[in-house]
Design a protein around this nucleic acid. Structure first.
Length: 826
RNA sequence: GCCCGGGUGGCGGAACUGGUGUACGCGGUCGGCUUAAACCCGACUGUCCCUCGUGGGCAUGUGGGUUCGAAUCCCACCCCGGGCACCA
């Protein structure tokens, strides 16, 4: 009994035995370290977005790193020296909010979580170069975040500026534009308010054009590029000057439609416009205007931004001159005009603009048609399409409006009343946060010297220890009095440290640079080392970062390039965005109780099953629904391949392939080479892991079938199984390494990626599809390379083709060699 | 409203540039192994019809079109998902 039990154990596929064994080999031998020395191999930098360490890793992490690891392994085995590092985006609000609740230092809760992530990555068998690991909250890292900040500061790319900013009343901090989703804080969902505050900004808008244009140089999913284009929102148009004669002030407006200038019947300014009070003064409208402005400024960002709400506004009691025709048009203040875009004032053309039309309807203002082509009169609905100009000017009437745009701008330009202009939706990146757990901004405020950067040799400015993490609308760092009080680095006098910290997106905007030279304590990196790896060849992460992180990182790389610190102008040459894993069609969440945790799955089936299943479930860029039964199917497959390999290795000799292949051997060899070809194609370029794994399943099934039905030679059997293991390695590395070693004695990761032998891909004959009028009627065996006439004859001779052709006239015959023949009859 | 994706068996999905629709997996049915169950292994599995075959009709969201041939291309519409949304 003991013996048979042992024998049974021998045959069992046991990931609990297999996986730790190989993990130990890789750890002991430091297999996945990229090394420092250039050894002549082409390099490849494969990177997954670094995790935010909070609690335990979830199934989305597993997918992200399973995809990245498959790519990293494939690149290694196709001859590349691969950099595949790992780190942690460790500063951030969740750890701080946890600290507010529990008093546990964010550093400690983050460290606990990092341990969980490290364990998970090892349990999952992800091939990470651990020598480059760091957390962005390590002083040895954020020292250089501060250095980069100062680099940008010195070039004027980081600046302090007072403006209306987005404020989250729950998190008690300002937010970047990108962090406001539908008027709500992207972190906590509270309605965001507008506040007038002086804050730190990065001048990302200086890079708007390059961020836009260089999208053409990178291989990213088109929808991500589109999102970035829309976010940057470049609009070409003109700035046109309207003059208020009574006050003698000029008000430029930005318009994308100079062709409609003759249709401007009123003029609107944003409630925040600095001249509002001055304009209303002495008109009798002062009180009404003041009331309206106060009301508008107190609206929530969401209320204000709602395009469907009825238009409101009040007259200022002044007029401006329309520069194209000298007309005096009334001025209004209305909250549908935004101070942050253009000049904070617009010309209103109700005949050809939805918003102006709605406003004109409410306040009964004249509506004039200046572009013809609308189906209904412009009084009823604005016409926003193209057409010839009317009611404008003898020089322009009848001209196609597209043409008139430049004609009118040129004409205005000659008289100094306007000029071409470009506007962007993109705003500068507001980076300061009134929160504790972030990178301190390394500047000092001195009454005499103003803002003084902390000298480089005093970096890092360490985050001080504090007692109370509770946000109070000012940075909690304010409370660290001893830390705040400092001598001015410039004059030596009394000064105070900046107490705001940086947005965590600053930390993650350059981490991929640090990995290249992570242990450097003399500099953020050595440019020569960086040049070996950058840009990242393949970046992998969630599409939720399409704008935020992916735009900021591009900006950082461009700015650092301009400062002469790096060669690359783009951080990520290729981007892959993976889809979400859902359960029962819904996003996993604790409140829904539909969370699938990697831990129990791996405990039950092993990491290989979990990884391979996630890749097999469907195209990795799509969302996919988790199925417990599906996991079992993949587990069965891995077990089958492992058992077949183990048994074959134990029970058959290992002779060379016989010179004369039997039909069975040939079938196995063909299937193996077909699988090599298929998997290689699926891996290079496309990320078709699901069909790649399906091909390996087919190969394994073929082995089972042939072994069951016939008597293949051991060599063919071993080749087919070895090939299956070799191809499986990127998806299920432990099982594949184990099976491969048993079959060949070699380590699969040290083997080059298999190459398909064209002799086994070609076939002597193929199944020729015979169609009559486009419908498949028969199939016949045809010799490869047969010419048209032979194929036509073969098809015509097929019995079921005969049956359908009989009694009809053959009109023509379409022959597609190596595929089909279609007989067209009547 | 605008801009992207996407609708294929009972389910997840496959079909590279128009050329065998439904690979692979799940589920289901039947069978083998077993005292039994689990595991494992094998066969079948879009749908309807009949004269039961090497048979025929119908099937890729809906309706048209192009083509010898359409899941794939074109037009219109419906549904689902995502992004943007008073940006002048």
């Amino acid at each position: 009994l003991a013996l048979s039990f042992a024998a049974a154990m021998e045959e069992r596929y046991d990931p609990k035995q297999i996986e730790p064994r190989w993990q130990r080999v890789w750890a002991n031998e430091r297999t996945w370290e990229a090394g420092e020395v250039d050894d002549g191999r082409p390099t490849s930098y494969v990177l997954e977005m670094l995790p935010y360490p909070s609690g335990e890793p979830h199934i989305g992490h597993l997918k992200n790193y399973a995809v990245g690891d498959a790519v990293a392994h494939f690149h290694r085995r196709t001859g590349h020296r691969v950099l595949h590092p790992m780190g942690y985006d460790a500063f951030g609000l969740p750890a701080e909010n946890h600290a507010i609740k529990t008093g546990q230092h964010p550093r400690d809760s983050t460290a606990e979580s990092i341990v969980q992530f490290q364990k998970a990555f090892r349990d999952w068998g992800i091939s990470i170069d651990w020598t480059r690991e760091f957390a962005t909250s390590d002083p040895t890292y954020y020292r250089w975040t501060q250095w980069i900040f100062l680099q940008l500061f010195e070039r004027g790319l980081a600046y302090r500026h007072e403006a209306a900013v987005k404020w989250c009343p729950n998190d008690q901090t300002v937010l970047a534009n990108e962090q406001v989703i539908d008027g709500r804080c992207e972190r906590c969902g509270w309605e965001v308010e507008a506040r007038q505050l002086e804050q730190w900004q990065f001048r990302i808008t200086d890079y708007a054009d390059r961020l836009l244009d260089d999208l053409d140089t990178i291989q990213w999913p088109e929808h991500v590029k589109t999102m970035q284009r829309n976010w940057i929102g470049r609009s070409e148009g003109a700035e046109v000057v309207f003059r208020c004669e009574e006050l003698g002030t000029d008000y430029p407006v930005f318009t994308t439609r100079p062709d409609t200038l003759f249709g401007a019947t009123f003029f609107v300014m944003a409630p925040e416009h600095p001249d509002i009070e001055r304009l209303a003064a002495g008109t009798g409208h002062e009180d009404e205007v003041r009331r309206y402005v106060n009301h508008a400024l107190n609206e929530s960002v969401q209320e204000r931004g709602d395009a469907d709400k009825p238009k409101t506004g009040v007259a200022l009691g002044r007029t401006v001159t329309n520069p194209v025709n000298g007309e005096q048009i009334p001025m209004y203040v209305a909250d549908y005009v935004l101070m942050e875009y253009g000049t904070g004032a617009i010309m209103a053309v109700p005949g050809h603009d939805e918003r102006d039309h709605a406003f004109a309807k409410v306040y009964d203002l004249p509506i004039r048609e200046v572009i013809s082509g609308g189906e209904v009169p412009v009084e009823e609905a604005p016409y926003t399409g193209d057409g010839p100009l009317v009611n404008s000017h003898p020089d322009f009437d009848g001209m196609a409006n597209r043409k008139a745009i430049s004609a009118i701008v040129d004409w205005l330009d000659r008289d100094g009343k306007g000029h071409r202009s470009v506007n962007y939706r993109l705003r500068d990146w507001l980076l300061s946060r009134q929160r504790y757990w972030g990178c301190p901004i390394p500047v000092v405020h001195c009454d005499r010297c103003g803002i003084v950067p902390v000298p480089e040799d005093q970096l890092p400015v360490l985050l001080p220890e504090i007692e109370d993490y509770q946000p109070k609308g000012r940075s909690p760092l304010d409370a660290a009095e001893d830390w705040v009080r400092v001598d001015c680095p410039s004059c030596g006098g009394e000064a105070r440290r900046e107490t705001d910290t940086m947005d965590t997106f600053v930390d993650s905007s350059w981490y991929f640079l640090r990995y290249c030279d992570a242990m450097n304590n003399q500099a953020a990196w050595d440019p020569a080392v960086l040049a070996r790896w950058m840009p990242v060849d393949q970046y992998i992460g969630g599409v939720e970062h399409a704008i935020l992180h992916l735009l900021y990182a591009r900006f950082f790389v461009k700015a650092l390039h301009d400062l002469g610190h790096i060669e690359a102008e783009e951080p990520f040459q290729r981007l892959f965005t993976q889809g979400m894993i859902t359960r029962d069609g819904a996003k996993m969440s604790k409140s829904k109780g539909n969370v699938v945790s990697p831990g129990p799955i791996i405990d039950r089936y092993g990491a290989d099953t979990a990884r391979a299943y996630i890749l097999f479930i469907g195209p990795p860029d799509h969302d996919a629904d988790w199925s417990d039964k599906g996991v079992e199917g993949v587990h069965r497959f891995l077990g089958r391949l492992w058992r077949l390999s183990t048994e074959t290795a134990a029970t058959t000799p290992d002779p060379p392939l016989p010179a004369e292949l039997s039909a069975e051997d040939l079938e196995l060899m063909r299937k193996a080479h077909w699988a090599i070809d298929k998997v290689t194609n699926d891996m290079s370029g496309r990320f078709a892991f699901n069909t790649a794994i399906a091909a390996i399943m087919e190969l394994t099934n073929a082995v089972s079938r042939v072994r069951e039905a016939g008597d293949p030679s051991p060599a063919a059997l071993r080749f087919a199984l070895g090939t299956a293991s070799s191809l499986l390695f990127p998806f299920a590395p432990h099982t594949a390494a184990d099976a491969y070693e048993k079959l060949t004695g070699a380590r699969v990761w040290e083997e080059p990626w298999p190459a398909a032998d064209p002799r086994f891909l070609e076939r002597d004959t193929y199944e020729l599809v015979c169609q009559v009028n486009g419908k498949v009627r028969d199939r016949v065996e045809a010799p490869s390379g047969a010419v048209k006439d032979e194929l036509e004859a073969l098809c015509m001779a097929a019995p079921n083709v005969q049956a359908h052709v009989d009694g009809h006239d053959v009109l023509k015959v379409i022959v597609v060699p190596e595929k089909l023949v279609n007989v067209v009859v009547r």
